[in-house]
């Protein structure tokens, strides 16, 4: 299980990254996140939507209502240019953290 604080911190880059591969709607985004993390990254479903709306308000993503084949209303989200930029900065930060940890956790070399 991933801790609550980490889930909260990673929600934004996770959503933006998922949207990088093309527009998508809420349910699918959640499914994808679960799938990618092998079920360890658990969002409470309701929590995602406020974050999506927030991101839309900040103009990182755009939304559009569409009717799916089954006649169901779905709201699709799409990454904007500023969303991409935002993702780049996020990515950099995560990579720095990642790099730091990988250096720290590299198996120590035996006596030379």
């Amino acid at each position: 299980m991933i801790s609550k604080a980490l889930v909260a911190a990673s929600t934004k880059p996770m959503i933006l990254s998922i949207l990088l591969s093309g527009e998508n709607y809420g349910y699918q985004i959640i499914q994808k996140a679960k799938e990618l993390s092998g079920g360890t990254l658990e969002w409470s479903d309701g929590m995602l939507y406020p974050v999506l709306h927030r991101l839309e308000k900040d103009e990182f993503i755009q939304s559009q209502w569409r009717i799916s084949e089954g006649g169901r209303l779905r709201k699709y989200y799409k990454l904007t240019d500023s969303g991409r930029e935002e993702l780049e900065t996020e990515k950099k930060q995560w990579l720095i953290v990642h790099e730091a940890f990988s250096k720290l956790w590299k198996p120590l070399p035996a006596f030379d």
Partner: peptide, 19 residues
């Protein structure tokens, strides 16, 4: 159950400063 109660959902919306 997965989506959560209306009031919890509501406060989540408020909390994320959508306004």
């Amino acid at each position: 159950e997965g989506l959560g109660q209306a009031d919890i959902l509501g406060t989540e919306f408020y909390k994320s400063h959508i306004g």
